[in-house]
Write a protein that binds this DNA or RNA. Structure first.
Length: 879
RNA sequence: GGGAGGUUAGCUCAGUGGGAGAGCGUCUGCCUUACACGCAGAGGGUCGGGGGUUCAAAUCCCUCACCUCCCA
């Protein structure tokens, strides 16, 4: 089989994805003797496009799934999508508006139908993108948060929580988004610093001609004031108790009240109280039984209650007008520049309007406490654990969750109202009718917060509330991989509902990834125009390079600056792998991959590479286990490129010449090492590894079908060989020295040189002598010999305890050596001095551990012997 | 206001008590029959500042400065 010189990922990547899919390689078993391993995908928006954050998380999930699958687990990565209530509805709404109509004029049924059509049209995008990335999802188990099964799970969960009293309906002050025309949860409110103004307004007293001053950032809400409050201990205002102020512009009598929440230091220590439009004031109003005057409506316009002059006016316009009138009428005392935090709707960006409204709530305090406590003493593991405090703080101070949304796209709340206004909550309309004793029921028009359904994701996807085989096999799941930005939105809710409904943590571990940023560390955003489409990267660099880059950059607790240069480097790594295999196949004709090898029958370079491979195998497993994908990738890269390609293949080249007796064994070792390396790489680079693995002769003995199902290498103890690693390290050091000296002497790549060695350690001397053919090839030497005495007129040194000399035929190096040696002696002196000082320090000898003392002693011996060797060279004397 | 994280080579980042590392970029020399998406070599950092603990500090403690992010 002839391989192209340069690899082209686009030529084979999707071929393999189709092949895997046709053969159902990734299909998990509902019942299996194997241990199960399960990851649920964080469901992306069904009509959305995957961004780099998804690519990162999907890469990690796929890597883990492939790794465990190869380790023999019954591995399931379950894919799916989220209906994404608001996001999707808004998108279709915009589309409808472009056609000159509105959702209201279409009506609910027709509009929702339009969204379903939109969903059908775009739902394939996510799969397409995941396929291109190489995701090994089990698509036979794909779920959608609005499919029948999940809808049933949602109704079941709602009804049970209602029956337990955890879900209830009530009138409260909620975060209203005038931009979306719906209530939203606390989490969907984003605090933004706003440069506003603080207005000091005088309120006359009802009796007499005195007046007091209050400060507010929202003067338009004064139209809804129903009291003025001060702190109970505030000496200044005690005599106001029982008295009244007159509300300017309106004339309403406002009682003075005392309440603990008032901060005496703020402004004058007197605050206006608007129970219908401020959370603190709402609470004060409840404590003091104040009336609520709602002056702003759900679209941010002034209401009738505000008065004829104001009704219909936008809240911003009303503010300007109120200020103008207060100024005209002498009530405006002063206006200050004032920077403060204002809640904004995360999705629509408009300022939140706190509004009194009847909504459904879920009191999650008990569930949060149980989530904190863990199950049977086992707490959720967060990786990295830096999120622990944030997690605990949030769960510890949780407030009721507003779960109803005034939208049309989503799970309609399973509550029905009789003509008399009685509420019936049931699993379906029939059940509700049976309870109510009448068919004349109207279902609550609201839908549930999107996160309510995705909060059930880990078990509803497996068939809950039914006790399905999938649920038994895969639940609880093993790992959740997601961004910290939805730790509370989603992770916390899954943990709470998981414990509540199943009595178990839905996953043992949560791996929180960082945010993908651009190479300058800037957050990617459409407005900045620095977003990168993962598909573009895949098309340019290949999915494997993108995956390797993302995995290699995933350091714990850190954001990920996507460096295109680095990705180009990993594409080059792919090319390196491609060519290493190309070389191996071309030079090993007749040989095949071995299932196992006996190192005792092999030459040093073969024993060395097997030992190194065994170590890397163990290391990669260990690093995956610890979610250190960056370190795993570094190990893979360093081994394949730095050891296998740079050294072993070079060492094998002479032996792989056709008539060498060592050829068959070397060829077998090379193919075996390549084969295992490809398996080792497979979780990170699935396409390339499959493409190449399928070409290896004898790979059927490892697995009949696919590398994706072949066992993951675990590191053979029998291959570890400290001795050969140490000998080879010395050998490689000396080769490095010879190459460096060649370069310094200005030798051309073909100019031969000679290396002679004097080694006092017989075993090492024998080893080095035996490597002569290799050494001559690696460093372009005419001679490599262990001798009794170093020759004159050579460049001499001492490397890893061996006296070495490099000479060039017909060239006396003594003069140029003199210069070099003197400069090196100068560099050596302070190092020796430091170690001599350290070892002369009694405290160091007494207190430092023996191995540290020993190490430094050895180091000093080494440096001193090197100095002696150089001095000897300098004086042209005997070594 | 509370909390978390960061500051290490030109760039992006590893390294958490014992001789400062990687990738990319830079410089030099090479198309050496796997790979120029390559090979061989080189240069480059008083580990943000200051103080402390220790025989020993990039690493632990204190403090200051600057930068992110989360929560109120």
């Amino acid at each position: 089989m002839i391989m192209e010189k340069t690899f082209d990922p686009s030529a084979y990547e999707q071929k393999w994805q189709r092949w895997w899919s046709e053969r159902e390689i990734f299909r998990a078993e509902a019942d299996s003797a194997k241990p199960s391993y399960c990851i649920m995908i964080p469901p992306p928006n069904v009509t959305g496009r995957l961004h780099l954050g998804h690519a990162l998380q999907s890469t990690i999930q796929d890597l883990l799934t492939r790794w465990r699958r190869m380790q023999g687990y019954n591995a399931l990565w379950l894919p799916g999508t989220d209906h994404a209530g608001i996001a999707t509805q808004v998108m279709v709404e915009r589309q409808v508006e472009k056609e000159g109509t509105t959702r209201e004029s279409l009506g609910r049924e027709a509009f929702v139908k339009r969204i379903w059509e939109w969903k059908e049209k775009h739902q394939g995008n996510i799969r397409q993108q995941l396929d291109e990335l190489g995701a090994s999802c089990d698509w036979s188990r794909e779920r959608f948060t609005l499919d029948d099964g999940m809808s049933r799970a949602v109704r079941e969960a709602f009804v049970r929580l209602y029956e337990q009293g955890t879900i209830y309906r009530g009138e409260y002050l909620v975060n209203w988004s005038p931009g979306l025309d719906t209530a939203i949860s606390d989490l969907e409110v984003e605090m933004r610093e706003v440069a506003g103004k603080l207005y000091h307004v005088a309120y006359p007293l009802a009796e007499g001609d005195g007046r007091i001053v209050v400060a507010t950032t929202r003067p338009e809400t004064m139209l809804g004031d129903t009291a003025v409050a001060f702190h109970p201990q505030d000496e200044r205002y005690q005599e106001l108790a029982g008295k009244f102020a007159l509300l300017p512009l309106v004339g309403r009598k406002l009682p003075f009240i005392a309440d603990d929440v008032v901060q005496p230091e703020f402004g004058t220590g007197l605050v206006k109280v608007t129970p219908a439009h401020d959370l603190t004031d709402f609470e004060i109003g409840k404590r003091h039984d104040l009336p609520r005057v709602q002056v702003i409506d759900r679209l941010g316009r002034m209401t009738e209650e505000a008065g004829d002059e104001w009704v219909g006016m936008d809240r911003d316009a009303a503010r300007a007008r109120v200020v103008e009138r207060l100024r005209d009428e002498g009530y405006l005392v002063k206006v200050e520049e004032y920077t403060h935090n204002v809640g904004h709707c995360q999705r629509s960006g408009v300022p939140i309007e706190p509004l009194v409204s009847t909504q459904w709530f879920c009191d999650v305090s008990d569930m949060a406490a149980r989530a904190l406590a863990g199950v049977d003493g086992v707490e959720l593991e967060l990786v990295p654990d830096t999120w622990r405090k944030t997690w605990e703080h949030w769960l510890g101070s949780i407030r009721p969750w507003c779960i109803s949304r005034q939208l049309w796209w989503g799970h309609q709340i399973p509550a029905w109202y009789t003509a008399e206004g009685e509420v019936v909550v049931a699993r379906d309309r029939q059940a509700a009718a049976a309870i109510a004793g009448t068919d004349e029921l109207e279902q609550d028009p609201d839908v549930l917060d999107t996160w309510f359904s995705s909060g059930l994701w880990p078990f509803s996807t497996l068939g809950w509330p039914d006790e399905t085989a999938d649920l038994r096999t895969f639940y609880p799941t093993d790992v959740l991989v997601t961004g910290f930005d939805i730790l509370f939105f989603w992770v916390a809710r899954m943990v709470m509902t998981g414990i509540h409904f199943t009595g178990q943590l839905p996953f043992r571990t949560v791996h929180l990834t960082g945010l993908v940023r651009d190479a300058q560390g800037q957050k990617m955003s459409k407005t900045k125009g620095n977003t990168v489409d993962p598909l573009d990267l895949i098309h340019e660099y290949g999915a494997d390079a993108l995956r390797f880059t993302l995995a290699a950059l995933d350091s714990p607790g850190r954001d990920i600056p996507l460096d295109i240069e680095r990705m180009a480097g990993y594409r080059a790594f792919g090319n390196k792998i491609w060519n290493a295999v190309r070389f191996s196949l071309a030079r090993t004709e007749g040989a095949a991959v071995a299932v196992d090898l006996d190192p005792s029958q092999l030459a040093a370079p073969e024993r060395w590479i097997l030992s190194r491979l065994a170590r890397v195998e163990a290391e990669v497993n260990e690093r995956f286990e610890a979610f250190r994908f960056d370190e795993a990738c570094r190990a893979l890269y360093g081994f394949f490129w730095g050891e296998l390609c740079d050294w072993y293949i070079e060492l094998a080249k002479p032996v792989l010449g056709v008539d060498d007796p060592g050829r068959p064994r070397a060829a077998e070792v090379l193919l075996t090492v390549i084969e295992r390396s490809l398996r080792l790489l497979h979780p990170v680079m699935p396409f390339l590894s499959e493409e190449l693995w399928q070409r290896l002769p004898g790979r059927e003995a490892i697995h009949q079908e696919s590398i994706a199902l072949a066992p993951y290498p675990r590191g053979r103890e029998a291959w570890l060989d400290d001795r050969v690693e140490a000998d080879m390290a010395s050998f490689m050091e000396i080769i490095g020295w010879a190459r460096k000296r060649r370069a310094e002497l200005g030798l051309g790549p073909r100019d031969p040189a000679e290396v002679t060695l004097v080694c006092s350690e017989p075993a090492l001397a024998g080893f080095l002598a035996a490597q002569s053919p290799l050494a001559r090839a690696l460093a372009t030497l005419g001679r490599w010999e262990v001798v009794a005495e170093l020759p004159p007129a050579a460049s001499r040194d001492r490397v890893v305890g061996v006296d070495v000399a490099l000479s060039v035929a017909g060239r006396d190096l003594e003069a140029e050596e003199r210069v070099r040696v003197e400069s090196e002696l100068g560099e050596l002196a302070p190092q020796i001095e430091r170690l001599v000082g350290l070892l002369a320090n009694d405290d160091f000898i007494a207190k430092a551990p023996a191995n540290v003392v020993g190490k430094n002693r050895l180091r000093l011996d080494e440096l001193e012997s090197r100095r002696r060797a150089m001095l000897a060279a300098l004086h042209g004397g005997e070594s």
